[in-house]
């Protein structure tokens, strides 16, 4: 089987699994909703005010935490004996590509639902909403690409949940900083062309991360 057909088959498997065991996506949504509720009560419980700066920071922190939580399960959902089975069936490149595609789709959906919930609860601070949605999509895909690979590394250890946070936070900080900067300019409704350069950097990070993951995954995989 070629790489593409293997990848397509594995992506189908991921989504089928997701559809049958619906708790994964639902768990992420409840996590998001819970976090947003906590923020809501913390800020508006006794009547308060939220500056656009804080709104932005809160939104990305919640998205980051939910993404780490969602991505960390991508290699733990199935038993390790099942991974040996895949090892015989497919090439490691197809496996990491399918996980990447699945996580990118999952996290973009999650970020969209999160954005909708967040604006509903915390009020809409964004002036250029289309731009903000675009930034969220690019940002979620960047986070997904980085976190998927970190999850693959963390899954090799016994304490993968703890290590996931330790390994991923420092690595995603550059991405997150650019995201916070561009999304702030979307919140303020600034000229869109100002953000294009930063968005190109994010896309470049995405491409580099996916390429590096594809090249390095075979070394993680062989046991």
């Amino acid at each position: 089987m070629s790489l593409i057909s293997e990848t397509v088959a594995l992506v189908k498997k991921e989504f089928l699994l997701e559809f049958r065991l619906r708790y994964m996506f639902n768990a992420v949504l409840v996590y998001l909703a819970g976090a947003i509720f906590i923020c809501y009560f913390a800020f508006f419980g006794r009547g308060g005010d939220l500056s656009p700066m804080t709104w932005n920071a809160l939104f990305w922190i919640i998205v980051l935490l939910a993404s780490v939580n969602a991505a960390s399960r991508s290699f733990l959902l199935e038993r390790s004996s099942r991974h040996y089975y895949y090892y015989f069936l497919a090439s490691p490149g197809a496996i990491i590509l399918s996980k990447l595609i699945y996580n990118i789709v999952l996290l973009i959906l999650m970020a969209m639902v999160g954005l909708a919930l967040f604006t509903l609860m915390m009020g809409n601070a964004v002036q250029d909403l289309t731009m903000f949605i675009g930034i969220t999509i690019i940002g979620a895909s960047c986070l997904a690409a980085t976190l998927t690979f970190i999850a693959a590394i963390a899954a090799q250890t016994q304490h993968s949940m703890t290590l996931m946070a330790v390994l991923s936070f420092p690595v995603v900080i550059p991405v997150l900083l650019i995201l916070i900067k561009v999304s702030k300019s979307a919140i303020d409704g600034l000229e869109r062309s100002l953000a294009y350069q930063d968005l190109m950097v994010l896309l470049a990070v995405n491409v580099i991360t996916i390429t590096v993951s594809y090249l390095l995954f075979p070394y993680l995989w062989k046991n």
């Binding site: 590394i153 390994l167 690595v171 550059p174 580099i208 590096v212 390095l216 070394y219 993680l220």
Partner: peptide, 22 residues
């Protein structure tokens, strides 16, 4: 050795990105 080598290769571009982006 194998897994930390992979992480090291993955982390170095992030380090370079920090130096250039920040």
């Amino acid at each position: 050795a194998r897994i930390t080598a992979v992480y090291n290769i993955f982390a170095f571009p992030a380090f370079m990105a920090l130096i250039y982006i920040m």
